[in-house]
C-alpha cells in the first residue's frame, strides 16, 4: 500500500495549483495515505490551503528561516529527512519541482520518474519522451522508494472542502549556505496564470514586434485569457520568457487555446496537445498547426485579430 508524500509549491502567500494536481495523481496511485509537506519561513496560511484539498491525510510543515526561498540544495535534505515512512515522494513538474525533486532522488540514491502522465500501477507509469512524440511506459523497482514529478497538464485539480490536520515537524538537518537567493524579476500581470487559465491566447513570430503583440493582449483581455507565445516570439524579444509554451517552456491544458500566427513546430505543439479546443489563425494554409487545430481560419492576423476582438467585445 502506497504512503505518499507530496512537496507543496507556493510563493510564500499562495499555494500553487500544481500541488492539488499532484494530489490527483497520488490518489490514482491508490495512496492509503497522502501527506503534503510545506517548506517555508512562515507557512500557516499555505498549510491551511493544503489541508483543504480533498484526499489529503495530513499536512506537515517545516518552518525555518533558510526556507524563505525555494533553494533546492537547502530544501532537498529536509525533504529527504522525512521520507522514511513513505513509499512515494511526488512533486510537480514545474520549474520548482524539476529543480528540487531530482536532488531529493539523488540524496535517497534512486532515479526519478519524470513527468507522470498516467498511473498504470503503483510502480508503473506513462511519461512523454522526445518532446511528447513518444510515450513510454516505465516501471520503477518496487524495493526502492519512488521519487517522481507529476506532469501537471495531465491531471485535474483535486476538489476542495477537506480539513486535514496540520502538524509542525522539526527537521534540524544541516543545510548548506553556498547558495544565495538574490531576487525574482516577475512579470507583472493581472491576467490569468498561463499554467492554470481556462482560456489561453498565444502569438508567434508573425506578429513582427513587441508593439504588435499588444493586439494579442487586447484579445486576451476580451476573453479573460492567459497569454502564451512561441519560442521564436520570445527569442525575438516580443514578450518575456515566462510566456513560452512548448517542450522547453510551459506545458498547458486550457479548455480553449487560440494560436495566432503560430506555425505549429513540434516543440510548440508538445506544450498544447492536451488543450480542449485549439483554434488556429494563420495566413499560411499549409501551416502545421492546422493539422492539429479543431477550428482553423486562414487569414492575415492583422486583419482577423481586430475583427475578432470587436466581435467578442
Amino acid at each position: 500500500m502506497a504512503r505518499i508524500l507530496i512537496v507543496a509549491e507556493h510563493d510564500g502567500s499562495a499555494l500553487n495549483p500544481s500541488t492539488s494536481k499532484c494530489v490527483s495523481c497520488a490518489a490514482a496511485i491508490d495512496g492509503v495515505e497522502i501527506d503534503v509537506v510545506v517548506l517555508g519561513a512562515s507557512v500557516a496560511d499555505i498549510a491551511n490551503q493544503c489541508a483543504a484539498i480533498d484526499g489529503v491525510s495530513r499536512v506537515r510543515t517545516i518552518e525555518r528561516p533558510e526556507n524563505e526561498h525555494p533553494i533546492a540544495a537547502v530544501q532537498a535534505p529536509q525533504v529527504a529527512a522525512i521520507c522514511d515512512d513513505y513509499s512515494h515522494v511526488l512533486g510537480p513538474s514545474t520549474t520548482f519541482g524539476r529543480d528540487l525533486m531530482p536532488h531529493v532522488a539523488a540524496l535517497l540514491g534512486v532515479n526519478q520518474v519524470s513527468d507522470i502522465m498516467s498511473v498504470e500501477g503503483p510502480q508503473t507509469f506513462k511519461r512523454p519522451v522526445y518532446a511528447g512524440n513518444a510515450i513510454v511506459t516505465v516501471e520503477a523497482p518496487d524495493d526502492a522508494k519512488l521519487v517522481a514529478t507529476v506532469r501537471i497538464a495531465s491531471w485535474p485539480a483535486a476538489a476542495g472542502g477537506n480539513a486535514a490536520p496540520v502538524e509542525a515537524v522539526t527537521v534540524d538537518t544541516a543545510v548548506p549556505s553556498h547558495t544565495q537567493y538574490i531576487g525574482l524579476e516577475a512579470t507583472a500581470s493581472d491576467r490569468p496564470d498561463l499554467q492554470t487559465a481556462a482560456r489561453v491566447v498565444a502569438g508567434g513570430r508573425a506578429f513582427g514586434s513587441a508593439e504588435k503583440f499588444e493586439l494579442l493582449y487586447e484579445l486576451a483581455d476580451v476573453l479573460g485569457a492567459g497569454v502564451g507565445a512561441t519560442r521564436a516570439a520570445v527569442d525575438a524579444g516580443y514578450c518575456p520568457n515566462d510566456m513560452q509554451v512548448g517542450q522547453t517552456g510551459k506545458i498547458i491544458a486550457p479548455e480553449l487555446y487560440v494560436a495566432i500566427g503560430i506555425s505549429g513546430a513540434i516543440q510548440h505543439m508538445t506544450g498544447i496537445k492536451d488543450a480542449g479546443t485549439i483554434v488556429a489563425i494563420n495566413k499560411d494554409e499549409d501551416a502545421l498547426i492546422f493539422e492539429a487545430a479543431d477550428i482553423g481560419l486562414v487569414a492575415d492576423l492583422f486583419d482577423a485579430l481586430p475583427e475578432l476582438i470587436e466581435a467578442l467585445r
Binding site: V110, V129, N133, T137, V138, P141, E291, A292, E307, L308
Partner: peptide, 24 residues
C-alpha cells in the same frame, strides 16, 4: 536502482478539425 523502460507508443494524435471562412 534503474527505472526500466517498457514499450513505446505514439501519442494519441489530434484530429484535423474544421476550416472556417471568416471571423464571424
Amino acid at each position: 536502482p534503474v527505472v526500466t523502460e517498457g514499450s513505446y507508443a505514439s501519442p494519441e494524435g489530434r484530429q484535423r478539425g474544421v476550416r472556417v471562412d471568416d471571423v464571424s
